[in-house]
Computed example of a mutant assay.
Amino acid sequence: MDRLASAPIRLSDAQRIDWLRLIRSEHVGPRTFRSLVNHCGSARAALERLPDLARRGGASGAGRICSIENAEREIEASHRLGVALLAPGEHGYPPRLALIDDPPPLLGVRGAHETEMRPMIGIVGSRNASGVGLKFTQGIARDLADAGFVIASGLARGIDQAAHRASLDGGTVAVLAGGHDRIYPPEHEGLLASVIDTGGGAISEMPLGHSPRARDFPRRNRLISGVALGILIVEAAHRSGSLITGRFANEQGREVFAVPGSPLDPRAAGTNDLIRQGATLTTCAADIINAVAPIMGRPIELPMEEDEPPHEGREPQETDRARIVGLLGPSPLGIDDLVRMAGTSPAIVRTVLLELEMAGRLERHGGGMVSLN
C-alpha cells in the first residue's frame, strides 16, 4: 500500500482562515496560491501583498480579497454539513492529489477520511452509456473494490453512476464539480447519500453555494485523475469530457486504461483512439491491478508546508516588466522560454507573472504556459 514520506501536517485555525481567504480572493487559483505562498512566505503575507502586486501589474484598483468574516462563515457552514476543509498533507486529503501541479490548497472533504487515504482507481465514461458499457463498469468496479481499491468518479449519469453503485460496499469517492450543497445532477443526491452512508466520501474544491458551470467540469476532471493511481475510461465519444480526464491523467503521470469497443459505436471512438495512442487495453480488473502494482509501494512525498522562506532577491524594475510584458501576447508561451527570451532570472519572471495575474491580465494554461488576456 502507499507509504507517506513524512508525518502529516496540520494547519492552525488561523492558518486555515488565511489559506481560505487567499484561495477565495479574486484572480487566485491553485497554481497562483502556491506561487504567492512561495513568493511571500505565508498566506497571510500574501494577502497583505495582493493590492501592491495588482498595482504593479497594471490594475487600476485592488481585486476583491476574501474577508475574515466570509472565511469564518464558510468554515462554520461547512462544519454544519459535515465537510472538513483540508490542506495537502492533512489526514483525509487524498495523498496523490497533493502531488499534482495545481492541487486545491483547501479541499472540502465529506465522509470517511480513511477512505480518502486509500489507493484509488478512477472510472469515467459516457453519460449516454450503452447497456454493455454499464454492465462492464459494474463488474470491473466491483472486482476492483473487492481487490481493495476505492473507486473515484464524478457522480454523473451513465458510467459514473454505475461505477459508484457497484463499489458502495468497498468504498467509493464522488468528485463534485460544484459545492457540497449543489449536487449535479440533482437526481443523484440520493446516490451521494448512499456513498456517504456506506463509508465512502465526497470531495470538492468549490465553495458552498457554487452551482457547477460548464467550465467547472474540466477542473473537476483533473481531481478525478489526481486522486487516482490510474483512470479507466469505459466509453467516450470524440471530444468527450472523459477524454479530458484521460489527458489530465497523462499530464499527472497517471496510468490510463481504456476499454475497446465496436468501431460502429460512436461511444467507443474515443476509447479506441486512446488505445491507439498508448493507453492500456483493458478487459478485466487484472489488467489494471497488474499495471499499478509496481506503483503501490513507492513513497508519496508530502507537499509544501507554509514555512518556506519568502523569495529573496531584487524586485523587478520597470524595464524588467516592460520586457516581459512585451514578450507575452494572446498565444500561450512557456515560462521557461519566457525566462530565456527575457534574459533575466526565473525569480524576476515569476514575480512579474504574479503581478500580472493579480491585475487580471494573465491566463495560465497547462504545461507551464501563460498568455495575456
Rank of each mutant, 00 (worst) to 15 (best):
L155A: 05
P266R: 09
P104N: 10
G148D: 06
M304D: 15
M206L: 01
R34D: 12
E355F: 11
R142E: 12
G200R: 10
D265Q: 06
E308R: 15
M358I: 00
D18I: 01
H39S: 14
L36G: 02
I348N: 07
R56P: 03
G148C: 09
G261W: 03
V292R: 10
G366W: 15
R298A: 13
A237I: 04
I159W: 13
L11D: 04
R314M: 04
R165A: 11
G170Q: 11
F136H: 14
V349E: 09
L176K: 05
I224A: 00
N221F: 07
Y93F: 12
P316D: 00
R323G: 00
E251Q: 12
A45Q: 12
A237H: 11
M120G: 09
I289V: 14
P51A: 02
P207L: 04
P346S: 02
L86H: 06
R157V: 03
I23S: 12
G111R: 11
P94E: 10
D273S: 11
S153W: 08
I289E: 08
E301L: 14
I335S: 05
M304C: 08
L81S: 09
T245W: 03
G125W: 11
T115H: 09
R73W: 01
T344Q: 01
A342T: 11
L99E: 12
V256P: 02
G261A: 08
I140M: 03
D13G: 09
S371F: 04
P95I: 13
Q138R: 15
Q277D: 10
R220T: 02
H39A: 14
E116Q: 15
R182S: 15
I23F: 06
G278F: 06
C66R: 14
A98W: 12
G61R: 15
L356Q: 03
R157S: 12
P263D: 10
P309V: 02
P94W: 11
R321L: 00
I288A: 01
I65M: 08
H180G: 10
S262T: 04
G131L: 12
E357V: 09
R219W: 00
A54C: 01
T198Y: 09
A279M: 00
E312T: 13
A156N: 03
F257L: 04
D181R: 03
A286H: 12
R10Y: 06
H238K: 15
S345N: 03
A71S: 13
G111A: 07
A291C: 10
D273V: 07
R44P: 07
S67T: 15
L264I: 10
D13Q: 15
R3E: 08
G270C: 01
R31W: 14
D273M: 13
A147D: 13
I324S: 01
N250Y: 13
A87P: 07
G170M: 06
L53R: 02
V173P: 04
L134R: 15
T172K: 07
A152N: 07
P218S: 00
G246L: 02
L333S: 12
E114N: 14
A87L: 11
A342K: 09
L4V: 05
E48W: 06
A45G: 01
A87M: 06
Q317T: 03
S167R: 05
G148T: 10
A322E: 02
R127G: 09
